[in-house]
Amino acid sequence: MAYQQGYRASPKHRAPRGPAPTMGDPTQLFDDTSAGMPPQHPGGYPSQPGGYPQQGYDMGGFSVDSIFTDPMANVAMAYGSSMANQGKDMVSKEIDRFVSINKLKYFFAVDTKYVMKKLALLMFPYTHQNWEVRYHRDSPMTPRHDVNAPDLYIPSMAFITYILLAGMALGIQKRFSPEVLGVCASTALVWMIIEVLALLLSLYLVTVHSELTAFDLLAYSGYKYVGMILTVASGLLFGSDGYYVALAWTSCALMFFIVRSLRMKILATASSEGVVSHNSKNRIRIYITVATAGFQPLMIYWLTFHLIR
């Protein structure tokens, strides 16, 4: 903006501010409509007297509070919650049909004292006298209170230890690779599952009723990994001679343990059976027990001989 020649605006002398223009003043460009509106938030939203934005602000015709005040929305939320609870109950029932969580907890109810006694029993079972599982109110006592009760803690830990020991043995022989270790682990797991399924099928085909469950058979089948650990460790420390000595000792001990442990459950007969049926089924039970025990040394050798060179 150009000023007239000879005129110089001074910032110290300003024109006094006059009164605000009123309605009808020809100098006012727009009418003041702020008198009837609530104070504005700095972000442009209408504010409450305390300075906070009003709740339920209408954004283009959509009210946030309408979600919570709409009866249909509340009904839909309640219906969805009930359907989710029903689905959770159905999933839990289906899981309990195949894997009972309460029964699984029983096989892991162990402590350090039980683990030490059980390991000693697996390696030196010949001096043990009482092999019966104790009961309390028609329920078997947990492993921590009865050393004769089967558990899944020792088989699980022994399986993991066997895989780690196999990896170390392969590494010492410079034959380690993730693929070889994976094959070793999967082979051991598959053979144990086949063993359990074969025993269940045998008991079913010969119509032998016993107190054994799939978890019991899995526990007894998994105890072989304790002997496998001792066998592989002896082979790594003392060579092939140590391997075969440990194999013979652990095989005999495990066979004795399996026969004495399963005898109380597989050889148990119902009192209603006749004499002929009693004798014939007892022979079948004896065959199954001996076959199960005799299969353990074969599995120990099959799963460990390739680790010793």
Rank of each mutant, 00 (worst) to 15 (best):
G171K: 03
L122K: 03
Y135L: 09
K93R: 14
I163L: 04
A109N: 12
E211S: 14
M123R: 05
S100A: 08
L181C: 07
S202M: 12
V133K: 06
A185G: 02
A198Y: 14
H136R: 13
W191E: 11
L199A: 10
F159T: 14
G171T: 10
L199C: 09
M116K: 15
R137F: 12
G80R: 08
S82F: 06
I154W: 02
L212R: 04
R137A: 13
T213R: 13
P150N: 01
L201E: 13
V133R: 14
H128A: 07
N102W: 13
L121Q: 06
K93Y: 07
F107V: 03
D146L: 05
W131H: 02
G167N: 07
K103Y: 04
G87I: 13
M141V: 01
V190A: 09
S210K: 08
A149S: 15
P150D: 00
D111A: 01
S186Y: 06
L122Y: 00
Q173W: 01
N148L: 09
V91P: 00
T207A: 15
H145Q: 08
L203W: 03
A84V: 09
F107K: 01
T207C: 14
F176I: 01
V206D: 12
V183Q: 12
L205G: 04
E211M: 07
M90D: 11
N85E: 11
S100Q: 10
A149D: 01
L121A: 02
D138M: 08
A149C: 06
S139N: 13
S156Y: 06
L121E: 07
L212H: 03
I163P: 07
P143L: 03
K174P: 04
H136P: 00
K88G: 13
N85A: 09
Y204C: 11
F108E: 07
A198T: 05
R144P: 07
E179G: 05
V190P: 00
R175H: 10
I163N: 04
G87N: 14
I154P: 01
T112W: 09
A185R: 11
L205D: 08
L203V: 03
L181E: 00
G87R: 14
L104I: 01
A198E: 15
A185Y: 07
G80D: 14
P143I: 02
G167I: 09
L181P: 12
A169F: 00
W131V: 01
S81D: 10
V206Q: 12
S100G: 05
L201Y: 08
A185T: 08
